Computed example of a mutant assay.
Amino acid sequence: MYKTTTKPTPNRDGRETEHLSSPNKSVEDRYRGLIALFLLIAVATFLAACGAYGLFTGDFASVRNTWMIAGPFVGMISTHYFSAKQVNA
């Protein structure tokens, strides 16, 4: 399932280690991205529907409640995909 890379890399203490790599990493990343995109589209759809409902009724509590539940998930997804990449030193 997992195989080692061909080039061992040195550790901090000078010893060399081999890294494991998944043969299906690009497929896994693509599906994770599709799931995240689906969740963001679903949240936007629900917020738009709640906003339209609020325009007709004059009560925007449904928008507030939807955002209260969906907001943390949108935050987690966006910080994962749009945060600065850290380089191991």
Rank of each mutant, 00 (worst) to 15 (best):
Met1Phe: 14
Met1Gln: 10
Tyr2Val: 06
Lys3Asn: 02
Lys3Pro: 00
Thr4Met: 00
Thr5Ile: 04
Thr5Gly: 08
Thr6Met: 05
Lys7Ala: 14
Lys7Arg: 13
Pro8Trp: 11
Pro8Arg: 10
Pro8Cys: 08
Pro8Glu: 09
Thr9Ile: 15
Thr9Cys: 07
Asn11Val: 13
Arg12Asp: 11
Arg12Leu: 09
Arg12Cys: 07
Asp13Met: 09
Gly14Phe: 02
Gly14Cys: 04
Arg15Gly: 09
Arg15Ile: 15
Arg15Phe: 07
Arg15Trp: 00
Glu16Asp: 15
Glu16Pro: 03
Glu18His: 08
Leu20Gln: 11
Ser21Ile: 15
Ser21Arg: 14
Pro23Ile: 05
Lys25Cys: 09
Ser26Arg: 14
Val27Leu: 12
Val27Cys: 11
Val27Lys: 12
Val27Ser: 12
Asp29Thr: 04
Asp29Ser: 06
Arg30Thr: 09
Arg32Cys: 07
Gly33Lys: 06
Ile35Tyr: 05
Ile35Leu: 11
Ala36Asn: 01
Ala36Pro: 00
Ala36Asp: 11
Ala36Lys: 00
Ala36Ile: 05
Leu37Tyr: 06
Leu39Thr: 06
Leu40Arg: 01
Leu40Val: 09
Leu40His: 03
Ile41Arg: 01
Val43Ala: 04
Ala44Ser: 10
Ala44Pro: 07
Thr45Gln: 02
Thr45Ala: 06
Leu47Asn: 04
Ala48Cys: 06
Ala49Leu: 06
Cys50Phe: 12
Gly51His: 04
Gly51Ile: 00
Ala52Gly: 02
Tyr53Ile: 00
Gly54Glu: 03
Gly54Gln: 05
Thr57Ser: 08
Gly58Tyr: 06
Asp59Lys: 13
Phe60Ser: 07
Phe60Val: 08
Ala61His: 14
Ala61Leu: 10
Ser62Gln: 15
Ser62Leu: 15
Val63Asp: 07
Val63Thr: 09
Arg64Pro: 01
Arg64Thr: 15
Arg64Gly: 12
Arg64Phe: 14
Asn65Ala: 15
Thr66Met: 12
Trp67Ile: 11
Met68Gln: 10
Ile69Asn: 10
Ile69Met: 09
Ile69Gln: 02
Ala70Val: 05
Ala70Gly: 11
Ala70Gln: 00
Ala70Leu: 04
Gly71Val: 00
Phe73Pro: 04
Phe73Ala: 03
Phe73His: 02
Val74Trp: 01
Gly75Trp: 00
Gly75Val: 10
Ile77Tyr: 02
Ser78Tyr: 07
Ser78Asn: 13
Thr79His: 15
Thr79Val: 13
His80Gly: 03
His80Tyr: 11
Phe82Arg: 03
Ser83Trp: 02
Ser83Ile: 08
Ala84Pro: 03
Ala84Gln: 01
Gln86Ser: 02
Val87Cys: 07
Asn88Lys: 09
Asn88Ser: 13
